[in-house]
Amino acid sequence: MKKFTICDLDGVNWDDHCNDSVNFDDLIKQGLIVVGDVVTVEGQADCPLPLRKNQFCISFSKDNELFVEEPFSLEECKSLFGTDFSY
């Protein structure tokens, strides 16, 4: 488990991560996910979610208002955290 700071929200297609219980576009519009947030990233060995190769589990949490775990691809992580992202 490692902590990373979000540096860009524009490079991810958030619609790919929306479902009946989570709408990331709304969370971003409400300011619950912003550039500068520190999130927890877990690899396959640590994440409770099933992950494919080159996927990572990102846990977004903020002020007891939000807790979301979601798988993201390596490319999405590089977009969110910078091209030098490595886990």
Results as ranks from 00 to 15, higher is better:
residue 81 F to W: 02
residue 72 F to Y: 05
residue 70 E to V: 09
residue 20 D to P: 01
residue 52 R to C: 14
residue 26 D to N: 13
residue 10 D to V: 14
residue 72 F to K: 00
residue 17 H to E: 04
residue 66 L to Q: 04
residue 35 V to M: 13
residue 75 E to G: 07
residue 86 S to F: 09
residue 35 V to H: 11
residue 86 S to Y: 10
residue 83 T to N: 08
residue 2 K to D: 11
residue 49 L to I: 15
residue 69 E to Q: 14
residue 85 F to K: 01
residue 87 Y to S: 10
residue 18 C to S: 12
residue 57 C to N: 10
residue 43 G to M: 11
residue 76 E to R: 00
residue 62 K to G: 06
residue 58 I to T: 03
residue 42 E to W: 08
residue 42 E to H: 10
residue 34 V to R: 13
residue 12 V to C: 05
residue 77 C to P: 00
residue 36 G to N: 07
residue 54 N to V: 11
residue 16 D to I: 03
residue 44 Q to D: 11
residue 74 L to P: 01
residue 49 L to Y: 07
residue 2 K to E: 12
residue 4 F to T: 04
residue 21 S to H: 08
residue 43 G to A: 15
residue 20 D to Q: 08
residue 29 K to S: 15
residue 19 N to Y: 06
residue 40 T to Y: 09
residue 50 P to E: 13
residue 71 P to N: 06
residue 75 E to H: 05
residue 32 L to P: 00
residue 9 L to Q: 07
residue 71 P to M: 04
residue 56 F to I: 06
residue 1 M to K: 14
residue 66 L to W: 03
residue 65 E to F: 14
residue 37 D to S: 06
residue 3 K to G: 09
residue 23 N to H: 08
residue 56 F to K: 02
residue 65 E to R: 15
residue 17 H to I: 03
residue 16 D to G: 06
residue 27 L to R: 01
residue 30 Q to A: 10
residue 2 K to M: 15
residue 2 K to H: 14
residue 3 K to M: 13
residue 20 D to Y: 07
residue 20 D to R: 09
residue 62 K to I: 10
residue 2 K to A: 15
residue 39 V to N: 01
residue 4 F to H: 09
residue 7 C to K: 09
residue 87 Y to D: 08
residue 14 W to K: 05
residue 38 V to Y: 04
residue 59 S to D: 12
residue 51 L to V: 10
residue 58 I to V: 13
residue 1 M to Y: 14
residue 87 Y to F: 15
residue 11 G to Y: 03
residue 17 H to A: 05
residue 40 T to M: 12
residue 60 F to L: 10
residue 55 Q to F: 13
residue 20 D to I: 04
residue 19 N to F: 08
residue 82 G to V: 02
residue 2 K to W: 11
residue 36 G to S: 07
residue 25 D to W: 08
residue 75 E to D: 10
residue 56 F to T: 02
residue 35 V to S: 11
residue 25 D to K: 09
residue 19 N to D: 15
residue 55 Q to D: 12
residue 13 N to Q: 08
residue 69 E to N: 15
residue 1 M to G: 14
residue 18 C to E: 03
residue 30 Q to L: 13
residue 22 V to C: 03
residue 70 E to Y: 06
residue 26 D to K: 12
residue 62 K to H: 13
residue 86 S to P: 02
residue 7 C to W: 01
residue 14 W to T: 04
residue 74 L to H: 08
residue 57 C to A: 15
residue 55 Q to G: 09
residue 2 K to Y: 14
residue 44 Q to E: 14
residue 22 V to F: 05
residue 35 V to W: 10
residue 50 P to G: 12
residue 69 E to V: 14
residue 30 Q to C: 13
residue 58 I to A: 05
residue 73 S to F: 02
residue 3 K to H: 13
residue 51 L to P: 02
residue 38 V to E: 10
residue 47 C to T: 09
residue 25 D to R: 10
residue 2 K to P: 02
residue 12 V to T: 04
residue 53 K to G: 12
residue 72 F to H: 02
residue 84 D to Q: 09
residue 49 L to G: 06
residue 17 H to L: 09
residue 58 I to Y: 01
residue 7 C to P: 01
residue 11 G to L: 05
residue 43 G to K: 12
residue 39 V to A: 06
residue 42 E to M: 15
residue 73 S to H: 02
